[in-house]
Design a binder for these strands. Structure first.
Length: 471
RNA sequence: GGCCCCAUCGUCUAGAGGCCCAGGACACGGCCCUCUCAAGGCUGAAACACGGGUUCGAAUCCCGUUGGGGCCA
């Protein structure tokens, strides 16, 4: 088991979990689960000014919601960079002692001038190397990199990518104030956590040769590298807040099912033939990082919602009821017991793409209509409609068994007697009972509402007609 | 600005030289079903960024252009 797969997800807690990061986390998780390896969570909180406890909690919560469980990481100690400064310091000292790193005291302003001069000459800025052989005892610690040759990143998704050393420079490992830089921390962390496969965003590809040089200076073997593309907004620019929802919890709050979110994220840049719907088990079995696409993908909320709808339809009411309950409460409504809620949800699930929408379209199950849709009311809540309501109420009141089939019988019979189409009575009833013109099959609705509630609502609708007539 | 990455329908993608005058899915249009809305079935419109090569043959390989993204900040 010496070569067991160990992967990590290393977010910076500077905000909520972004969907792009979530996809990176998912790919790591899938890779770990597929290979029966370990998935490690590491918090990259060296940027103390922007890292907060709240954000860590939020990220953890989002990962849990997605069902991406980690084998190592918080709350255990030692998985936050701020707890690991001694480790970075020790590695820096080793590099210094071995002559693979050196101190530099070039003033910031001078470096800035050089940078601008380089840009004016249309060249890549490289540190001049002035302090390379000065044997300084303090300052910023720089990595001594080879002057010539090239480093090639053998990327699992991109293939070999070559970087000329002439384009790289002796980058800073530890700043003058003693704080280690991001690239250095990452290398030390990945090495000490024995990460075998670094799966991360494309935006780090350019940093990779610098990191590889650091691995070599440290004398550590290289992990496999895999850089996955970024997620873009509809205008093909990096997905950001101005594109709308970008955090995982925004979709949770909207009532997207977590399995749908996982399915959608997996399909962004990855495919398995024509298959669109994947269970978690499918993904674990079929996913391979090598099959991930190289190009960036546009985030499409519409397709996400379609997937959520697909998962909603497939879930039995009993499984859905506990998921729906909090959304009923959030809408300011009271939900019945699980058994009844399950049956209600079964009539609603193919009519909603999200849990929020499901509660919206099924609102009448939890509360009497506060009003009746005006246009439909003009058509149905008429004196003639009131007469029909009375007839319906009488017969429904006399029904021996209260179930959808028996209720339908009443409607069929009355339809024949009155010489009207079923749609007339159905819509009349629907409007009276739900307040609107769209709902699950009306006989099922009445069956679920119960006889007393049905009759009460019919009566209320009739009362409205009478009140209108009097006015 | 330099370096790096990327480029098939509006979007996600299948496609690893002939199976492709390009397949699936979302969204969109039409028809059917129907107590409404959905769901479902059938169906329509919709793409290989451009230009050069290589090859008997290219969406697939190579070069360039353009466009987008990233890193250096």
């Amino acid at each position: 088991m010496a070569d067991a797969v160990r992967v990590r997800f290393a977010p910076s807690p500077t905000g909520h979990l972004h969907v792009g990061s979530a996809r990176t986390a998912l790919f790591n998780w899938l890779y770990a689960r597929h290979h029966r390896g370990s998935f490690i969570l590491r918090i990259e909180d060296t940027d103390r000014s922007r890292s907060t406890e709240e954000n860590i909690g939020s990220i953890v919560e989002a990962l849990e919601w997605l069902g991406l469980d980690w084998d190592e990481g918080p709350p255990a100690a030692g998985y936050r960079q701020t707890e690991r400064f001694d480790i970075y310091r020790a590695h820096a000292a080793r590099l210094l002692a071995a002559g693979r790193a050196y101190y530099c005291d070039c003033p910031r302003e001078q470096l800035e001038r050089e940078r601008q001069a380089a840009q004016a000459r249309k060249e890549t800025f490289r540190y001049s190397g002035r302090c390379r052989d000065r044997g300084l005892a303090a300052g910023a610690l720089r990595l001594r990199i080879p002057q010539e040759g090239a480093t090639v990143v053998d990327d699992l998704v991109h293939g070999p990518v070559t970087f000329e050393h002439a384009q790289l420079d002796d980058w800073i490992l530890v700043r003058t104030d003693g704080t280690p830089t991001y690239n250095f921390c990452v290398v030390v962390d990945d090495v000490t956590m024995r990460i075998t496969h670094v799966i991360r965003g494309d935006d780090h590809l350019s940093n990779t040769p610098k990191q590889i040089l650091c691995y070599e200076a440290l004398g550590y073997p290289l992990p496999e590298m895999a850089h996955v593309s970024m997620i873009l907004g509809a205008d093909r620019s990096r997905l950001s807040k101005r594109h709308g929802a970008t955090s995982v919890q925004a979709f949770r709050d909207r009532g997207i099912l977590p399995d749908a979110m996982v399915n959608y994220l997996a399909r962004l840049g990855w495919a398995h033939g024509d298959q669109e719907i994947f269970t978690r088990a499918d993904l674990v079995e079929l996913f391979d990082i090598k099959d991930v696409a190289t190009s960036a993908a546009v985030f499409d909320e519409t397709k996400l919602e379609w997937l959520s709808h697909e998962f909603l339809k497939r879930l039995p009411g009993e499984a859905l009821a506990p998921l729906v309950r909090p959304f009923v409460g959030a809408a300011g409504l009271a939900a019945p017991d699980d058994g009844r809620l399950a049956r209600i949800v079964d009539t609603l699930k193919e009519r909603a793409k999200t849990l929020v929408e499901l509660v919206q379209v099924g609102r009448f199950y939890f509360a009497r209509p506060a009003s009746w849709e005006p246009a439909a009311a003009r058509t149905y809540l008429t004196p003639e409609g009131a007469v029909r309501v009375v007839l319906l109420a009488e017969r429904l009141g006399a029904l021996a068994a209260w179930d959808a089939a028996a209720i339908e019988g009443v409607y069929r019979a009355l339809t024949a007697e009155l010489g009207v189409k079923l749609v007339e009575l159905a819509q009349l009833t629907r409007l009276a009972v739900t307040g609107g013109t769209a709902s699950p099959p009306i006989f099922e609705v009445l069956a679920l509402l119960g006889r007393d509630e049905t009759l009460a609502r019919l009566q209320a609708a009739r009362a409205r007609v009478l009140a209108e007539g009097a006015a």
